[in-house]
Deep mutational scan, measured.
Amino acid sequence: MPVRRGHVAPQNTFLDTIIRKFEGQSRKFIIANARVENCAVIYCNDGFCELCGYSRAEVMQRPCTCDFLHGPRTQRRAAAQIAQALLGAEERKVEIAFYRKDGSCFLCLVDVVPVKNEDGAVIMFILNFEVVMEKDMVGSPAHDTNHRGPPTSWLAPGRAKTFRLKLPALLALTARESSVRSGGAGGAGAPGAVVVDVDLTPAAPSSESLALDEVTAMDNHVAGLGPAEERRALVGPGSPPRSAPGQLPSPRAHSLNPDASGSSCSLARTRSRESCASVRRASSADDIEAMRAGVLPPPPRHASTGAMHPLRSGLLNSTSDSDLVRYRTISKIPQITLNFVDLKGDPFLASPTSDREIIAPKIKERTHNVTEKVTQVLSLGADVLPEYKLQAPRIHRWTILHYSPFKAVWDWLILLLVIYTAVFTPYSAAFLLKETEEGPPATECGYACQPLAVVDLIVDIMFIVDILINFRTTYVNANEEVVSHPGRIAVHYFKGWFLIDMVAAIPFDLLI
Rank of each mutant, 00 (worst) to 15 (best):
V3E: 14
G6M: 15
G6H: 12
A9R: 14
A9M: 14
Q11Y: 12
L15D: 01
L15Q: 03
T17A: 12
I18V: 11
I18D: 01
K21L: 06
G24Y: 07
F29P: 01
I31G: 01
A32D: 01
A34H: 05
C39F: 07
A40Q: 10
I42S: 01
I42W: 01
Y43T: 01
N45W: 01
D46A: 10
G47R: 08
F48A: 01
F48I: 01
E50F: 05
T65C: 10
D67M: 09
H70A: 06
H70G: 01
G71Q: 01
P72A: 09
P72C: 02
T74N: 01
Q75E: 15
R76T: 08
A79D: 01
A79C: 08
Q81Y: 08
A83M: 13
R92N: 15
K93C: 13
F98A: 01
G103R: 13
L107C: 06
P114T: 01
V115D: 01
K116D: 06
E118R: 06
E118H: 11
V122I: 08
I123Y: 05
I126R: 03
F129N: 01
M133N: 06
K135E: 05
D136N: 13
D136K: 15
D136H: 03
V138H: 13
G139D: 09
G139R: 14
S140N: 11
P141V: 14
N146I: 13
N146D: 03
G149P: 09
P150D: 09
T152D: 05
S153H: 06
P157Q: 06
G158C: 05
R159N: 07
F163S: 14
P168L: 03
A169S: 12
L173R: 13
T174V: 10
R176S: 06
S178N: 15
V180T: 14
R181H: 06
R181K: 13
G184T: 05
A185I: 06
G186K: 04
G189I: 15
G192R: 01
D199M: 01
D199V: 01
L200I: 07
L200N: 05
A204S: 04
P205S: 14
S209G: 13
A211M: 15
A211E: 08
E214V: 06
A217D: 11
D219P: 06
N220F: 05
A223L: 15
L225A: 06
P227M: 13
A228C: 05
P237H: 15
S239G: 05
S239V: 07
P240R: 07
P241N: 15
P241M: 12
R242Q: 13
S243V: 05
A244K: 14
P249T: 14
A253L: 14
N257E: 08
G262K: 08
C265G: 11
C265Y: 14
S266A: 05
L267D: 12
A268M: 06
R269Y: 13
R269W: 07
T270W: 03
R271A: 12
R271Y: 05
S272Q: 07
E274M: 13
S275K: 05
S275H: 09
R280D: 07
R281P: 06
A282R: 11
A285P: 14
D287F: 07
I288L: 09
M291L: 12
M291F: 11
A293S: 15
A293F: 15
V295H: 08
L296H: 08
P297R: 12
R301Y: 09
T305F: 11
T305R: 12
T305M: 11
A307V: 11
S313H: 12
S313P: 11
S313M: 14
G314V: 07
L316T: 09
L316E: 13
N317H: 09
N317E: 14
S318A: 08
T319P: 14
D321C: 15
K332D: 14
T337N: 14
N339D: 15
L343G: 15
A350F: 10
S351M: 07
S351Q: 15
P352Y: 08
I358C: 12
P361D: 04
K362C: 12
E365I: 04
E372Y: 04
Q376I: 01
S379T: 07
S379H: 11
S379Y: 06
V384M: 11
L385V: 07
